[in-house]
Amino acid sequence: MAKKPDLLPGTLDMLILKTLTRAPLHGYGIAQHIKRISDDVLTVEEGSLYPALQRLLLQGWVKAEWKMTETNRRARYYTLTIEGRKQLGLEVSEFERMIAAIGRVLQDQEA
């Protein structure tokens, strides 16, 4: 199995939270969504996805409930909570600040 590029550290939680702003989703759906939207650049490993979801549950940023899928299978759907939304806002602004900073440093080198 070819090694896929790792996510930037610390961004997985943010990506999951962002994905869940659209609608409640199950774990597989979250992984698929991130993969699809990023044009296959970002792959979420199952080994990181589920522990991350547990972490978010513990923090109270997401809620989980069992529902039926369109294909009539039982699956655990994760819903963003109000605290989760707040947290997402925090993380996104922090991330953007970081990216902008990195960008400035890189431009400085090109000049």
Binding site: H26, G27, Y28, E46, Y50, R73, R74, R76
Partner: peptide, 12 residues
């Protein structure tokens, strides 16, 4: 529950 969730993931 974790088992079921992962089995679902695998099947999908």
């Amino acid at each position: 529950e974790l088992d079921e969730e992962m089995a679902f993931h695998r099947v999908e």
